[in-house]
Amino acid sequence: MRNEVERPVDRHVVALQVNGERTELLLPVHKTLLEVLREDMHLTGTKHGCELGECGTCTVLVDGKPELSCLVLPIQIEGRAITTVEGLASGSELHPLQQAFAELGAAQCGYCTPGILLASKSLLESNGRPSRDEIREALAGNLCRCTGYAKILDAVQLASERMASPLPRRGEG
């Protein structure tokens, strides 16, 4: 099992717009967005499961669209709006998806949760009341080993109902 890694040669100053905050970083050009978020910006809410674009765990939003941060180089997305799980809540008020995931037990170990939350957010922005099959299709690239996906489907549906309905949301708990 050889670790075929080349030494970094090139470094660039990259300006990233993450969760509404602009940061300039000096980065080796090959360092992935996933690594930069976690290691340089300490936004460890974004997790990794494979670092090969296979499991969906590291999903973030770039201009509102889900991207696998392990396959994105920061230089590709300079100036575009990046959203990570840390940017979902408004202050201490949870996003309706986070609220529903918490209430319905859709996060067990929680490791795949940030990526699934962001993919779900993107779905609900383009399709406010998705069917269960539409949710399945949208989240098919995100693996979860704990839940059997059942409570995740329930939670995305609940969040979509609450976001679509003018009724006040239930409080925490």
Partner: peptide, 30 residues
Amino acid sequence: PLPKVDAVARVTGQAIYADDMLPPRTLHCR
């Protein structure tokens, strides 16, 4: 059917998993 006591930490990315830890001067092992 109550939510888990750590549910908020898990849905906000605040739960600290082992690989999330990076104290100053950390060395990386392979």
